[in-house]
Design a protein around this nucleic acid. Sequence first.
RNA 1: GUGCCUAUAGCUUAAUGGUAGAGCCUCGGAUUGUGGCUCCGAUGAUACGGGUUCGAUUCCCGUUAGGCACCCCA
Length: 442
Amino acid sequence: MAEDKKEKNKEAVRSFQAVKGMHDVLPADEPYWEKIESVVRALAKDYGFARIEPPVLEFAELYNKTSGDTSDVVQKEMYTLKTKGGDMLALRPEYTPGIARAYLEHGMSRLPQPQRLLAMGRIFRHERPQLGRARQFTQIDLETLGGVSDALYDAEIIEVMSDLLAGLKIKNPTLKLNSIGCRVCRPLYKKQLQAYYRAHEKDLCDDCRVRIDANPLRLLDCKEPGCEKLKEHAPSILDKLCINCSNHFKEVLEYLDEVKIPYELDSRLVRGLDYYSRTVFEFYADGPEAQIGAIAAGGRYDYLMETIGGHITPAVGGASGVERLIAVMRAKETAPNGAASTTPGSKRVFLAHAGELSKKRCFSLLRELRAKGIAVTESLAKDSLGNQLKVADKEGIGIALILGQKEIYEDTVIVRDLTSGIQEAVPVDRLADDLKRRLAAK
RNA sequence: GUGCCUAUAGCUUAAUGGUAGAGCCUCGGAUUGUGGCUCCGAUGAUACGGGUUCGAUUCCCGUUAGGCACCCCA
């Protein structure tokens, strides 16, 4: 019988495992989330990014049209579902198209331009989980939409991302920068690149032979020794930019110099989404944590609105992965202060009863103290006073209150300083003020 | 999506083709109104399914999950 029950429990636990790549955010992670949220909120306020939160589900077609029919994110990694009404929907694999859609749908082009928007929420990609890579994850997304295609805004997005990392004490990140040109210069460059690689096709790896036609820009990203060698003499996009793109990129660099943000030019940097034009960037953590992958990335996408029925609308954006930021913070031990609980133990008091008869009065006293703004916890379900105080000690609480029959008759409460071990009886009507004074001193 | 590696209690781990051992944590106790230290006790594990075997946690296969390298990406 007992055996059967055990088996049943096992069975139940097994069937309710978390879905692959979907992770619980546990109380122990909370300080990191709180820290990130507060830094993001402060930056949004300082730079004037307003919060927008588009839905998690959109028509799948929105992403096909924008992120791209050739991108892995859409082709291989998007969660799609068919509704009972027959609509094809997708769990958002990124923020940008949804925000662009909202911008058009709500006529935000009639508001002062550009619109600076901020979103923070869950993103879904069906890929093989790894460290810093899950199927559900969280992005902080910044978008500057509308106005003119001014390099100032490219630099600003990069600047905010840089501030975000600095605010989280992620020091010396590497910023990689590139420009992938526009409709005018990119096709020309692609042709030159293809021509160059066709001439050396026999020295390429199998993947790269496919890439020549499928995604020539990716040829520059291959790590096979043979292909690596060919890269050295491959034409660089930075030499092939048209005059407008070249000037735009130069200005981005000048703005970054102006605010002293260091960067590395990387003419091999190509982004996996179809809609990018001109500036693209990626931030990597310093040291071994670079393996976690880009911790923030983005670029300009002046043509995106046009593909979903709007006019050409200059826009630039960037996103950062919250779980990756946390992974880096953990690895670098830049842990935020404070324990798992919202209020650290030193700022809380603990109420213990001395004997069953005072439990009920304790329950109402908790309420009275909380109403006066005092954070108070308890372990009233335990019967012995010793065990209750043991809990207080484990939670790192500095002040314990003890209430027994004697105190109820006298209308007092024992206030015990758990650090010094000194205690005194305080009249109930003076209790809240007394505690506030003690807590302020902690 | 491809390849490789891993899987023992909530955590860290030991061991073995013959009944799985510890530390930490949790819970309880050491004159029932006083915590931290100490002592005692309790709970709790071979991820799941199949095969080989008299016998498998150990060997083999599959599944699941995690990690790594690709692909790609935040």
